[in-house]
């Protein structure tokens, strides 16, 4: 009797867990694209494996990160969902998760279901070899978007990505051009091992190692989280270590850092004591730079969906893309040169 009860409970727990695994990580569909097919429960929905020729729908599996992780990702995910719709000739399955292992498992499932294209924004740069090989064997073409992974170029059809190392280098070059006599940097890192973190950290690490007057006051990961970034900066302020640069690897974390500065009455931005740097494309961050509350924002363009769409249409017509790796146009903006026009063009 008791055993039965325990067994029943365990089963119920397992059931709840498996239900949760299907539903929990998928974001509810955004209101503006009601036509996105199978957008909500991609974990279980098997895409139609029917071969697509001519007027039939092209099946795509889209693996992305969690749209709630940052404003950048929200814009990125919304653009993908708005582009890959039945109206545009696609039957798309979406999967969102920040856990690379879960992404890989779902990608494998999608390859087994023989999607025509696998669109991938990997949460980590490694671990994708099997998926890529299986995809090649099954005739699924892989297109990377937003983030790179470590693999030979022959393993994917195209990549429409942000050039993270270049973003980092542009930012560090800009910082070096400020001509401070000493750089005491609080470095707030993103999710460790992600392409964005590696690229943006790499350039700064190199510079700090090379220059005698560049020092880290603190180097910590806040995992893209604003509240953690605030705590990190607060802790440095409390320990009374002097610093004059905050290099946050996304805008949300820069915002958290600024909250800590404001609370302690430390001036920042144009004419302030501390230089504040962020990344991505959020409109509010552009506005912060425009106001002079921040100094610099490295633009990371989240809107790759149209480019990916174009590549797929080309590939279907038998045309290989001219370049395998296409970098989205990106640049750095600082408070002295940013204009309202830039904000309107690039802000998301």
């Amino acid at each position: 009797m008791k055993m039965k009860k325990v067994l029943g409970l365990t089963l119920a727990a397992a059931l709840a867990l498996s239900l949760a695994a299907c539903g929990g990580n998928n974001n509810p569909p955004a209101n503006n694209n009601p036509s996105s097919a199978g957008g909500t429960s991609s974990g279980t929905n098997t895409p139609d494996p029917a071969p697509t020729t001519g007027g039939e729908l092209i099946t795509v599996g889209v693996i992305n990160n969690d749209p709630n992780e940052s404003g950048y990702r929200t814009a990125n995910d919304a653009a993908m969902r708005a582009t890959f719709t039945e109206a545009n000739g696609y039957k798309a399955t979406f999967y969102n998760n920040n856990d690379a292992a879960q992404q890989i498992a779902t990608a494998q499932q999608m390859v087994q279901d023989e999607v025509d294209f696998l669109l991938l924004s990997p949460a980590s740069t490694t671990g994708w070899d099997t998926v890529l090989k299986d995809a090649q064997a099954a005739g699924t073409q892989v297109i990377l978007f937003d983030r790179m992974l470590e693999a030979d170029e022959s393993m994917y059809a195209a990549a429409v990505v942000s050039d993270m190392p270049a973003e980092g280098k542009t930012a560090v070059d800009w910082l070096a051009a400020q001509g401070l006599s000493e750089y005491n940097i609080i470095h707030i890192q993103g999710h460790m091992g992600s392409d964005a973190q590696l690229g943006r950290t790499g350039a700064l690490d190199e510079k700090v190692a090379a220059e005698a007057n560049w020092n880290y006051v603190a180097q910590q990961t806040a995992d893209w989280d604003e509240a953690t970034a605030r705590t990190i900066v607060q802790s440095v302020i409390d320990s009374k270590k002097p610093f004059n640069v905050i290099y946050a690897e996304n805008n949300g974390m820069a915002r958290g850092a600024v909250a800590a500065l404001d609370a302690a009455g430390i001036t920042h931005g144009k004419d302030g004591d501390v230089i504040v740097m962020g990344f991505d494309s959020d409109k509010w961050a552009f506005e912060a730079v425009l106001e002079g509350s921040w100094n610099y924002m490295g633009l990371c363009n989240p809107l790759q969906a149209d480019t990916v769409d174009g590549i797929i249409k080309d590939l279907m017509a038998g045309k290989a893309p001219a370049q395998k790796i296409i970098y989205t146009p990106e640049q750095g903006f600082d408070c002295d040169t940013l204009t309202q026009a830039d904000v309107d063009t690039y802000g998301t």
């Binding site: 709840a16 974001n27 955004a30 209101n31 709630n68």
Partner: peptide
């Protein structure tokens, strides 16, 4: 009579999606 941890597991997994949904996925 569901064990508290199992009962609250529902909101644990669904809660953040509900929160995102409340604001139409905007931040």
């Amino acid at each position: 009579n569901i064990q508290p941890m199992v009962a609250t597991l529902i909101m644990y997994t669904a809660g953040r999606s509900i929160a995102a949904w409340i604001n139409n996925n905007q931040l």
